[in-house]
Design a protein around this nucleic acid. Structure first.
Lengths: 112, 112
DNA sequence: GTGTCATTAAACCAATCGGTTGACAATTCG
DNA sequence: CGAATTGTCAACCGATTGGTTTAATGACAC
């Protein structure tokens, strides 16, 4: 369940266009047109990216007149960050142990 | 440069098989066979996933006899986490502002 | 009403992805 | 030596991806 959401979140983040869109949205709400504007790409193409982000639950839209306003939903992002941070703990432990080993061997070498 | 590495990192993380492999590697070095074993999937299929992880710079291998030993390289992962955390700052600010607005409007309503 | 602005939907394309199989290479064991 | 272990590589498959174009929708402005 959370696994599948991680799939979608990381997949959405794997594209630079979508990351830029998210960064843009972090600064405030934007219409689809405003999100698409910075890219040298057909409008429909950019709109597809927005749809991917929406599918991953990263943006929500509401319609205002003929515009569609997108807002960022950070939930899945913090979830992804949590996943990374959880494992980072292990990596750091391992790195610390490795450093300790290297240190120990260095001192052994000096002693010899 | 860092952008392209983020592409690769997030893409690698977007697959549950690969995430499980990484989690496994966080616990210690593993041979390709050991990494492949937990999955109901052809060996070659799993080995491909390992290769993707290697391509993303997330694992390094060294050969020991006829085995290939894989070790985790957390660098790109922390980079990805940094990206997330950097923007999280903005999202939280926005959320805080939003809450403040809601709070203000609520009090307005009460005053009225 | 007509037109035009903002957006979606559909059809298509080449490239990539996740997976398979089968053949091959290198190393170790007996 | 031959046989088993460990792994790579290449070819292939169907599904998905990132992009295009063109057509269709829906809301505003005149």
């Amino acid at each position: 369940m959370v696994e599948q959401r991680l799939d979608a979140t990381f997949a959405a983040l794997a594209d630079p266009t979508r990351r830029r869109m998210l960064a843009n949205l972090a600064l405030g709400e934007k219409s689809v047109g405003e999100l698409a504007e910075p890219f040298r790409m057909s409008f429909a193409g950019a709109a597809k990216h927005v749809k991917v982000l929406e599918g991953a639950g990263l943006v929500a839209r509401r319609k205002a007149g003929r515009k569609q306003i997108c807002t960022l939903n950070a939930g899945p992002l913090t979830e992804a960050e949590k996943w990374l941070r959880q494992w980072e703990k292990f990596w750091n432990v391992r790195l610390d142990r490795l450093e300790a080993l290297i240190e120990r061997d260095k001192q052994k070498g000096e002693a010899k």
